[in-house]
Write a protein that binds this DNA or RNA. Structure first.
Lengths: 192, 192
DNA sequence: GCATCTAGACCTACTAGTAGGTAGTCTACT
DNA sequence: AGTAGACTACCTACTAGTAGGTCTAGATGC
Protein backbone atom coordinates (compact mmCIF):
# COMPACT_ATOMS: atom_id res chain seq x y z
CA UNK A 1 0.00 0.00 0.00
CA UNK A 2 3.00 2.28 0.46
CA UNK A 3 4.70 1.56 -2.82
CA UNK A 4 5.41 4.25 -5.30
CA UNK A 5 2.51 3.67 -7.68
CA UNK A 6 -0.07 3.54 -4.91
CA UNK A 7 1.27 6.82 -3.56
CA UNK A 8 1.15 8.44 -6.97
CA UNK A 9 -2.44 7.26 -7.42
CA UNK A 10 -3.40 8.62 -4.02
CA UNK A 11 -1.66 11.92 -4.60
CA UNK A 12 -3.34 12.49 -7.92
CA UNK A 13 -6.65 11.56 -6.32
CA UNK A 14 -5.98 14.35 -3.83
CA UNK A 15 -5.21 16.77 -6.68
CA UNK A 16 -8.34 15.81 -8.56
CA UNK A 17 -10.65 15.94 -5.54
CA UNK A 18 -9.32 19.38 -4.68
CA UNK A 19 -10.03 20.49 -8.22
CA UNK A 20 -13.38 18.82 -8.91
CA UNK A 21 -14.85 17.04 -5.90
CA UNK A 22 -15.82 13.38 -5.54
CA UNK A 23 -18.08 13.02 -8.56
CA UNK A 24 -15.91 15.22 -10.74
CA UNK A 25 -13.08 12.76 -11.30
CA UNK A 26 -12.82 9.19 -12.51
CA UNK A 27 -10.36 6.32 -12.54
CA UNK A 28 -9.76 7.22 -16.18
CA UNK A 29 -8.54 10.68 -15.14
CA UNK A 30 -6.16 9.19 -12.60
CA UNK A 31 -4.92 6.58 -15.06
CA UNK A 32 -3.98 9.34 -17.49
CA UNK A 33 -2.14 11.39 -14.87
CA UNK A 34 -0.27 8.45 -13.35
CA UNK A 35 0.42 6.84 -16.71
CA UNK A 36 -1.07 3.42 -16.09
CA UNK A 37 -4.29 1.75 -17.19
CA UNK A 38 -7.58 2.22 -15.45
CA UNK A 39 -7.79 -1.44 -14.39
CA UNK A 40 -4.40 -1.24 -12.68
CA UNK A 41 -5.72 1.28 -10.20
CA UNK A 42 -8.12 -1.35 -8.90
CA UNK A 43 -5.13 -3.49 -7.97
CA UNK A 44 -4.04 -0.81 -5.47
CA UNK A 45 -7.45 0.55 -4.50
CA UNK A 46 -10.24 -1.94 -5.20
CA UNK A 47 -12.93 0.73 -5.25
CA UNK A 48 -13.22 4.48 -5.56
CA UNK A 49 -14.40 4.58 -1.95
CA UNK A 50 -11.22 2.82 -0.82
CA UNK A 51 -9.12 5.34 -2.73
CA UNK A 52 -10.87 8.38 -1.32
CA UNK A 53 -10.88 7.01 2.22
CA UNK A 54 -7.14 6.34 1.92
CA UNK A 55 -6.61 9.85 0.57
CA UNK A 56 -8.49 11.37 3.51
CA UNK A 57 -6.63 9.22 6.04
CA UNK A 58 -3.32 10.31 4.56
CA UNK A 59 -4.50 13.92 4.51
CA UNK A 60 -5.41 13.72 8.18
CA UNK A 61 -2.10 12.07 9.03
CA UNK A 62 -0.29 14.96 7.30
CA UNK A 63 -2.35 17.46 9.25
CA UNK A 64 -1.52 15.68 12.50
CA UNK A 65 2.15 15.68 11.55
CA UNK A 66 2.14 19.37 10.69
CA UNK A 67 0.18 20.27 13.81
CA UNK A 68 2.59 18.25 15.95
CA UNK A 69 5.52 20.00 14.29
CA UNK A 70 4.05 23.40 15.04
CA UNK A 71 3.32 22.42 18.63
CA UNK A 72 6.91 21.30 19.14
CA UNK A 73 8.76 23.97 17.25
CA UNK A 74 6.75 27.15 17.63
CA UNK A 75 6.41 28.43 21.16
CA UNK A 76 3.73 31.06 20.55
CA UNK A 77 0.27 29.53 19.87
CA UNK A 78 -0.87 32.55 17.86
CA UNK A 79 2.19 32.19 15.67
CA UNK A 80 1.22 28.53 15.06
CA UNK A 81 -2.13 29.67 13.71
CA UNK A 82 -0.40 32.30 11.58
CA UNK A 83 1.77 29.60 10.05
CA UNK A 84 -1.25 27.36 9.51
CA UNK A 85 -2.94 30.19 7.62
CA UNK A 86 0.24 31.00 5.74
CA UNK A 87 0.42 27.41 4.51
CA UNK A 88 -3.04 27.70 3.01
CA UNK A 89 -2.35 31.14 1.60
CA UNK A 90 0.55 29.58 -0.33
CA UNK A 91 -1.72 26.81 -1.63
CA UNK A 92 -4.31 29.34 -2.75
CA UNK A 93 -1.69 31.56 -4.34
CA UNK A 94 0.07 28.75 -6.22
CA UNK A 95 -3.24 27.07 -7.01
CA UNK A 96 -1.83 23.77 -5.76
CA UNK A 97 -4.64 22.04 -3.89
CA UNK A 98 -6.01 25.44 -2.99
CA UNK A 99 -8.87 24.07 -0.95
CA UNK A 100 -9.22 21.69 1.99
CA UNK A 101 -10.59 18.45 0.51
CA UNK A 102 -12.50 17.70 3.70
CA UNK A 103 -14.28 21.05 3.44
CA UNK A 104 -14.97 20.47 -0.25
CA UNK A 105 -16.28 16.94 0.33
CA UNK A 106 -18.36 18.23 3.20
CA UNK A 107 -20.29 20.34 0.70
CA UNK A 108 -21.22 17.16 -1.21
CA UNK A 109 -21.56 15.11 1.96
CA UNK A 110 -25.15 13.76 1.76
CA UNK A 111 -24.36 12.16 -1.59
CA UNK A 112 -21.15 10.47 -0.45
CA UNK A 113 -20.72 6.86 0.73
CA UNK A 114 -20.86 6.54 4.49
CA UNK A 115 -17.22 5.55 4.95
CA UNK A 116 -16.18 8.80 3.27
CA UNK A 117 -18.63 10.83 5.35
CA UNK A 118 -17.05 9.36 8.47
CA UNK A 119 -13.54 10.32 7.34
CA UNK A 120 -14.62 13.86 6.54
CA UNK A 121 -16.13 14.16 9.99
CA UNK A 122 -12.97 12.85 11.61
CA UNK A 123 -10.96 15.50 9.80
CA UNK A 124 -13.20 18.27 11.08
CA UNK A 125 -13.05 16.92 14.62
CA UNK A 126 -9.29 16.68 14.53
CA UNK A 127 -8.85 20.17 13.08
CA UNK A 128 -11.27 21.69 15.58
CA UNK A 129 -9.57 19.97 18.50
CA UNK A 130 -6.12 21.19 17.46
CA UNK A 131 -7.28 24.77 16.97
CA UNK A 132 -9.14 24.69 20.28
CA UNK A 133 -6.11 23.40 22.18
CA UNK A 134 -4.00 26.09 20.51
CA UNK A 135 -6.43 28.85 21.41
CA UNK A 136 -6.64 27.66 25.00
CA UNK A 137 -2.89 27.52 25.35
CA UNK A 138 -2.62 31.01 23.89
CA UNK A 139 -5.31 32.32 26.19
CA UNK A 140 -3.54 30.85 29.21
CA UNK A 141 -0.18 32.31 28.26
CA UNK A 142 -1.67 35.66 27.27
CA UNK A 143 -0.62 35.48 23.63
CA UNK A 144 -4.22 35.13 22.48
CA UNK A 145 -7.33 37.01 23.52
CA UNK A 146 -10.65 35.15 23.33
CA UNK A 147 -13.72 37.33 22.83
CA UNK A 148 -15.98 34.39 23.63
CA UNK A 149 -15.47 30.75 24.65
CA UNK A 150 -12.59 28.74 23.19
CA UNK A 151 -15.17 26.41 21.64
CA UNK A 152 -16.96 29.15 19.74
CA UNK A 153 -13.78 31.00 18.76
CA UNK A 154 -12.45 27.72 17.40
CA UNK A 155 -15.55 27.11 15.30
CA UNK A 156 -15.45 30.68 13.99
CA UNK A 157 -11.78 30.54 13.12
CA UNK A 158 -12.14 27.29 11.17
CA UNK A 159 -15.30 28.53 9.44
CA UNK A 160 -13.51 31.69 8.36
CA UNK A 161 -10.60 29.76 6.87
CA UNK A 162 -12.94 27.43 4.98
CA UNK A 163 -15.21 30.27 3.92
CA UNK A 164 -12.17 32.17 2.72
CA UNK A 165 -11.13 29.24 0.51
CA UNK A 166 -14.60 29.15 -1.01
CA UNK A 167 -14.69 32.89 -1.67
CA UNK A 168 -11.19 32.83 -3.13
CA UNK A 169 -12.23 30.11 -5.54
CA UNK A 170 -15.49 31.81 -6.50
CA UNK A 171 -13.83 35.14 -7.20
CA UNK A 172 -10.53 33.77 -8.45
CA UNK A 173 -8.84 35.98 -5.89
CA UNK A 174 -5.93 35.17 -3.61
CA UNK A 175 -6.33 38.54 -1.92
CA UNK A 176 -9.74 37.75 -0.46
CA UNK A 177 -8.33 34.66 1.23
CA UNK A 178 -5.51 36.70 2.68
CA UNK A 179 -7.67 39.52 3.93
CA UNK A 180 -10.28 37.29 5.59
CA UNK A 181 -7.71 35.16 7.38
CA UNK A 182 -5.63 38.17 8.39
CA UNK A 183 -8.78 39.61 9.95
CA UNK A 184 -9.48 36.34 11.78
CA UNK A 185 -5.96 36.31 13.24
CA UNK A 186 -6.14 40.00 14.13
CA UNK A 187 -9.19 39.31 16.28
CA UNK A 188 -7.13 36.88 18.37
CA UNK A 189 -4.39 39.38 19.21
CA UNK A 190 -4.17 40.18 22.92
CA UNK A 191 -4.31 43.97 22.47
CA UNK A 192 -7.82 43.70 21.03
CA UNK B 1 -40.18 29.13 -19.41
CA UNK B 2 -42.34 30.14 -16.47
CA UNK B 3 -44.87 27.35 -16.73
CA UNK B 4 -45.51 24.97 -13.90
CA UNK B 5 -43.43 22.03 -15.09
CA UNK B 6 -40.40 24.17 -15.88
CA UNK B 7 -40.60 25.63 -12.38
CA UNK B 8 -40.87 22.22 -10.80
CA UNK B 9 -37.85 21.03 -12.77
CA UNK B 10 -35.85 24.07 -11.71
CA UNK B 11 -36.91 23.74 -8.09
CA UNK B 12 -35.94 20.10 -7.89
CA UNK B 13 -32.64 20.98 -9.57
CA UNK B 14 -32.07 23.42 -6.70
CA UNK B 15 -32.90 20.70 -4.17
CA UNK B 16 -30.58 18.22 -5.82
CA UNK B 17 -27.67 20.64 -6.25
CA UNK B 18 -27.96 21.63 -2.59
CA UNK B 19 -27.84 17.97 -1.67
CA UNK B 20 -25.21 16.62 -4.05
CA UNK B 21 -23.53 19.30 -6.16
CA UNK B 22 -23.35 19.62 -9.94
CA UNK B 23 -21.97 16.18 -10.80
CA UNK B 24 -24.03 14.44 -8.15
CA UNK B 25 -27.38 14.61 -9.87
CA UNK B 26 -28.70 13.63 -13.29
CA UNK B 27 -31.69 14.31 -15.51
CA UNK B 28 -32.92 10.87 -14.47
CA UNK B 29 -33.05 12.00 -10.82
CA UNK B 30 -35.05 15.07 -11.73
CA UNK B 31 -37.38 13.08 -13.97
CA UNK B 32 -38.18 10.78 -11.06
CA UNK B 33 -38.88 13.64 -8.65
CA UNK B 34 -40.98 15.68 -11.09
CA UNK B 35 -42.76 12.63 -12.49
CA UNK B 36 -41.98 13.11 -16.16
CA UNK B 37 -39.58 11.43 -18.54
CA UNK B 38 -35.97 12.36 -18.87
CA UNK B 39 -36.37 13.54 -22.44
CA UNK B 40 -39.11 15.96 -21.45
CA UNK B 41 -36.68 17.90 -19.30
CA UNK B 42 -34.72 18.76 -22.43
CA UNK B 43 -37.85 20.35 -23.82
CA UNK B 44 -37.74 22.93 -21.02
CA UNK B 45 -33.99 23.10 -20.48
CA UNK B 46 -32.04 21.94 -23.55
CA UNK B 47 -28.90 21.16 -21.60
CA UNK B 48 -27.82 20.61 -18.01
CA UNK B 49 -25.87 23.85 -18.20
CA UNK B 50 -29.04 25.74 -19.18
CA UNK B 51 -30.88 24.22 -16.23
CA UNK B 52 -28.23 25.05 -13.69
CA UNK B 53 -27.72 28.58 -15.05
CA UNK B 54 -31.50 29.13 -14.83
CA UNK B 55 -31.49 27.77 -11.28
CA UNK B 56 -28.71 30.15 -10.27
CA UNK B 57 -30.38 33.13 -11.94
CA UNK B 58 -33.60 32.40 -10.08
CA UNK B 59 -31.66 31.91 -6.85
CA UNK B 60 -30.00 35.29 -7.28
CA UNK B 61 -33.33 36.93 -8.12
CA UNK B 62 -34.77 35.53 -4.86
CA UNK B 63 -31.79 36.84 -2.93
CA UNK B 64 -32.25 40.27 -4.49
CA UNK B 65 -35.94 40.18 -3.63
CA UNK B 66 -35.30 39.17 -0.03
CA UNK B 67 -32.51 41.73 0.36
CA UNK B 68 -34.76 44.45 -1.05
CA UNK B 69 -37.53 43.40 1.33
CA UNK B 70 -35.18 43.64 4.30
CA UNK B 71 -33.89 47.03 3.15
CA UNK B 72 -37.43 48.38 2.87
CA UNK B 73 -39.01 46.84 5.92
CA UNK B 74 -36.30 46.61 8.55
CA UNK B 75 -34.86 49.90 9.69
CA UNK B 76 -31.88 48.59 11.64
CA UNK B 77 -29.10 47.23 9.36
CA UNK B 78 -27.80 44.88 12.05
CA UNK B 79 -31.28 43.45 12.42
CA UNK B 80 -31.33 42.78 8.64
CA UNK B 81 -28.21 40.67 8.98
CA UNK B 82 -29.74 38.89 11.97
CA UNK B 83 -32.77 38.00 9.84
CA UNK B 84 -30.54 36.90 6.97
CA UNK B 85 -28.73 34.55 9.34
CA UNK B 86 -32.00 33.39 10.88
CA UNK B 87 -33.26 32.42 7.44
CA UNK B 88 -30.26 30.16 6.92
CA UNK B 89 -30.47 28.77 10.44
CA UNK B 90 -34.00 27.63 9.62
CA UNK B 91 -32.77 25.98 6.40
CA UNK B 92 -30.02 24.19 8.27
CA UNK B 93 -32.36 23.10 11.05
CA UNK B 94 -35.09 21.82 8.73
CA UNK B 95 -32.52 20.37 6.33
CA UNK B 96 -34.31 22.05 3.44
CA UNK B 97 -31.60 23.32 1.07
CA UNK B 98 -29.33 23.74 4.08
CA UNK B 99 -26.47 25.16 2.06
CA UNK B 100 -26.01 28.03 -0.36
CA UNK B 101 -25.77 26.43 -3.81
CA UNK B 102 -23.41 29.15 -5.01
CA UNK B 103 -21.03 28.33 -2.15
CA UNK B 104 -21.36 24.62 -2.85
CA UNK B 105 -20.78 25.05 -6.59
CA UNK B 106 -17.85 27.31 -5.84
CA UNK B 107 -16.14 24.34 -4.21
CA UNK B 108 -16.41 22.44 -7.51
CA UNK B 109 -15.81 25.55 -9.60
CA UNK B 110 -12.78 24.63 -11.73
CA UNK B 111 -14.65 21.62 -13.10
CA UNK B 112 -17.82 23.51 -14.01
CA UNK B 113 -18.77 24.93 -17.43
CA UNK B 114 -17.84 28.59 -17.81
CA UNK B 115 -21.41 29.89 -17.92
CA UNK B 116 -22.04 28.33 -14.52
CA UNK B 117 -18.79 29.70 -13.12
CA UNK B 118 -19.91 33.16 -14.20
CA UNK B 119 -23.27 32.81 -12.45
CA UNK B 120 -21.62 31.61 -9.24
CA UNK B 121 -19.33 34.62 -9.34
CA UNK B 122 -22.26 36.97 -9.88
CA UNK B 123 -23.98 35.53 -6.83
CA UNK B 124 -20.94 36.16 -4.67
CA UNK B 125 -20.56 39.68 -5.97
CA UNK B 126 -24.21 40.46 -5.31
CA UNK B 127 -24.16 39.00 -1.81
CA UNK B 128 -20.94 40.80 -0.91
CA UNK B 129 -22.27 44.11 -2.22
CA UNK B 130 -25.49 43.82 -0.22
CA UNK B 131 -23.69 42.92 3.01
CA UNK B 132 -21.19 45.73 2.46
CA UNK B 133 -23.91 48.32 1.90
CA UNK B 134 -25.69 47.05 5.01
CA UNK B 135 -22.55 47.24 7.13
CA UNK B 136 -21.80 50.75 5.89
CA UNK B 137 -25.30 51.94 6.65
CA UNK B 138 -25.11 50.41 10.10
CA UNK B 139 -21.72 51.98 10.75
CA UNK B 140 -23.03 55.39 9.70
CA UNK B 141 -26.10 55.15 11.92
CA UNK B 142 -24.16 53.70 14.83
CA UNK B 143 -26.02 50.38 14.96
CA UNK B 144 -22.96 48.48 13.76
CA UNK B 145 -19.35 48.71 14.86
CA UNK B 146 -16.68 47.86 12.30
CA UNK B 147 -13.39 46.56 13.70
CA UNK B 148 -11.75 46.97 10.31
CA UNK B 149 -12.81 48.25 6.88
CA UNK B 150 -16.33 47.59 5.61
CA UNK B 151 -14.77 45.62 2.76
CA UNK B 152 -12.89 43.22 5.02
CA UNK B 153 -15.70 42.90 7.56
CA UNK B 154 -18.03 42.03 4.69
CA UNK B 155 -15.71 39.34 3.37
CA UNK B 156 -15.29 37.91 6.88
CA UNK B 157 -19.00 37.89 7.60
CA UNK B 158 -19.86 36.07 4.38
CA UNK B 159 -16.99 33.63 4.86
CA UNK B 160 -18.22 32.81 8.35
CA UNK B 161 -21.74 32.12 7.16
CA UNK B 162 -20.50 29.85 4.36
CA UNK B 163 -17.95 28.18 6.60
CA UNK B 164 -20.69 27.62 9.16
CA UNK B 165 -22.83 25.83 6.56
CA UNK B 166 -19.91 23.57 5.68
CA UNK B 167 -19.14 22.75 9.31
CA UNK B 168 -22.81 22.11 10.07
CA UNK B 169 -22.99 19.65 7.19
CA UNK B 170 -19.74 17.92 8.12
CA UNK B 171 -20.72 17.43 11.74
CA UNK B 172 -24.45 17.02 11.19
CA UNK B 173 -24.96 19.80 13.70
CA UNK B 174 -27.36 22.72 13.56
CA UNK B 175 -25.83 24.13 16.74
CA UNK B 176 -22.45 24.79 15.18
CA UNK B 177 -24.09 26.91 12.48
CA UNK B 178 -25.97 28.87 15.11
CA UNK B 179 -22.99 29.45 17.36
CA UNK B 180 -20.65 30.58 14.56
CA UNK B 181 -23.15 33.01 13.08
CA UNK B 182 -24.19 34.32 16.48
CA UNK B 183 -20.55 35.07 17.14
CA UNK B 184 -20.19 36.82 13.78
CA UNK B 185 -23.19 39.04 14.57
CA UNK B 186 -21.97 39.71 18.11
CA UNK B 187 -18.76 41.13 16.72
CA UNK B 188 -20.75 43.74 14.81
CA UNK B 189 -22.58 45.06 17.86
CA UNK B 190 -21.76 48.69 18.70
CA UNK B 191 -20.87 48.00 22.35
CA UNK B 192 -17.92 45.83 21.29
C1' DG C 1 -70.96 24.11 -35.77
C1' DC C 2 -67.36 21.75 -37.26
C1' DA C 3 -63.19 20.47 -39.50
C1' DT C 4 -58.49 21.84 -39.73
C1' DC C 5 -54.15 23.85 -38.40
C1' DT C 6 -50.62 24.96 -35.11
C1' DA C 7 -47.75 24.73 -31.20
C1' DG C 8 -46.52 23.25 -26.79
C1' DA C 9 -45.80 19.41 -23.87
C1' DC C 10 -44.66 15.04 -23.38
C1' DC C 11 -43.63 10.50 -24.90
C1' DT C 12 -40.74 6.06 -26.62
C1' DA C 13 -36.68 4.64 -28.40
C1' DC C 14 -32.41 5.51 -29.35
C1' DT C 15 -27.38 7.39 -29.65
C1' DA C 16 -22.34 7.81 -28.35
C1' DG C 17 -19.75 8.07 -24.61
C1' DT C 18 -18.27 7.24 -19.80
C1' DA C 19 -18.74 5.35 -15.18
C1' DG C 20 -16.85 1.88 -11.78
C1' DG C 21 -15.60 -2.63 -11.70
C1' DT C 22 -14.14 -7.70 -13.11
C1' DA C 23 -11.79 -11.83 -15.35
C1' DG C 24 -8.02 -13.66 -16.90
C1' DT C 25 -3.24 -13.19 -18.72
C1' DC C 26 1.53 -11.82 -19.04
C1' DT C 27 5.91 -10.37 -16.97
C1' DA C 28 9.58 -9.46 -13.82
C1' DC C 29 11.52 -9.93 -9.45
C1' DT C 30 12.38 -12.44 -5.17
C1' DA D 1 7.58 -21.29 -7.75
C1' DG D 2 5.16 -17.61 -6.03
C1' DT D 3 3.64 -13.12 -6.06
C1' DA D 4 3.10 -8.17 -7.08
C1' DG D 5 1.88 -5.30 -10.57
C1' DA D 6 0.58 -4.35 -14.71
C1' DC D 7 -1.98 -5.49 -18.87
C1' DT D 8 -6.07 -6.42 -22.53
C1' DA D 9 -10.60 -7.06 -22.99
C1' DC D 10 -14.68 -6.94 -21.32
C1' DC D 11 -19.08 -6.06 -18.40
C1' DT D 12 -23.30 -3.59 -16.76
C1' DA D 13 -25.19 0.63 -15.51
C1' DC D 14 -25.64 5.12 -16.31
C1' DT D 15 -24.72 9.83 -18.54
C1' DA D 16 -26.41 13.89 -21.44
C1' DG D 17 -28.52 14.46 -25.41
C1' DT D 18 -31.39 13.47 -30.01
C1' DA D 19 -34.92 11.88 -33.42
C1' DG D 20 -39.26 11.56 -34.26
C1' DG D 21 -43.93 10.54 -32.96
C1' DT D 22 -48.45 11.33 -30.10
C1' DC D 23 -51.70 13.88 -27.59
C1' DT D 24 -54.19 17.96 -26.39
C1' DA D 25 -55.87 22.70 -26.38
C1' DG D 26 -56.65 26.88 -28.60
C1' DA D 27 -57.10 29.53 -32.81
C1' DT D 28 -58.66 29.85 -37.48
C1' DG D 29 -61.38 29.21 -41.77
C1' DC D 30 -65.57 28.11 -43.85
Amino acid sequence: MDNDTAIRIRESAHDLIAERGYFGFSYADIAEVVGIRKASIHHHFPSKVDLVVATLKEYRARLAEAAGGLNNNVADPLQRLRLYVRYWAECVKSNHRPICIAALLSAELPALPEEIQAEVQLHFKYLLSWVKATLKEGAASGSIHLHSSAEVETQSFVAQVHGAMISARALGSTEIFTSITKNALERLRPSN
